[in-house]
Simulated assay, not measured.
Amino acid sequence: MLLDVQGAPAYCYTGGKPFDAALPTVVFIHGAQNDHSVWALQSRYLAHHGHGVLAVDLPGHGRSRGPARRSVEDLAEWLMAVLDAAGVRQAALVGHSMGSLIALEASHRASDRVARLAMLGAAFPMKVSDALLSAALDDEEAAIDMVNIFSHSTMAQKPSCPGPGFSVMGGARRLMQRMSRLNPERLFHTDFSACDAYANGEAAAQAVRCPALFIIGSRDMMTPSKATRLLTGAIAHGKVVRVDAGHSMMQEQPDAVLDALTAFLR
Rank of each mutant, 00 (worst) to 15 (best):
54 L>V: 11
52 G>N: 11
167 S>Y: 01
231 L>N: 04
57 D>T: 13
6 Q>F: 07
217 G>D: 11
84 D>T: 12
15 G>D: 06
214 F>V: 07
113 R>L: 06
252 E>T: 02
31 G>C: 01
256 A>C: 13
239 K>W: 00
50 G>T: 14
129 S>I: 08
151 S>Q: 07
91 A>Q: 05
70 R>F: 14
196 D>C: 02
227 A>V: 00
2 L>A: 08
243 V>Q: 09
165 G>H: 11
220 D>A: 09
143 A>F: 01
70 R>T: 12
26 V>Q: 00
70 R>K: 15
45 Y>G: 05
147 V>T: 06
192 F>V: 04
70 R>I: 00
91 A>P: 14
179 M>Y: 01
200 N>S: 05
97 S>Q: 12
55 A>V: 03
91 A>T: 15
137 L>N: 09
13 Y>L: 04
162 P>K: 03
199 A>G: 15
196 D>E: 07
19 F>W: 00
129 S>D: 10
40 A>W: 11
155 M>W: 14
228 T>A: 15
63 R>E: 14
140 E>Y: 03
193 S>M: 02
81 A>M: 12
154 T>A: 13
65 R>G: 14
17 K>D: 10
246 G>W: 01
19 F>G: 02
21 A>Q: 11
96 H>G: 04
148 N>M: 15
65 R>D: 15
46 L>F: 12
81 A>I: 09
152 H>K: 05
189 H>R: 07
224 P>Q: 02
54 L>M: 05
135 A>T: 08
107 S>D: 13
9 P>C: 02
103 A>R: 11
134 S>R: 01
9 P>M: 06
135 A>F: 08
25 T>C: 05
183 N>Y: 01
36 H>V: 00
146 M>K: 07
123 A>R: 11
162 P>E: 05
236 A>M: 07
56 V>Y: 00
66 G>A: 03
230 L>P: 08
13 Y>H: 11
26 V>D: 04
259 D>A: 12
44 R>W: 00
188 F>R: 01
192 F>A: 09
114 V>K: 03
5 V>G: 02
108 H>R: 15
90 Q>C: 07
131 A>G: 08
95 G>F: 05
1 M>P: 11
192 F>W: 01
236 A>Y: 07
208 V>C: 05
262 T>H: 15
149 I>P: 00
50 G>Y: 14
57 D>Q: 12
31 G>P: 07
143 A>L: 08
154 T>L: 06
189 H>G: 02
137 L>S: 03
190 T>D: 06
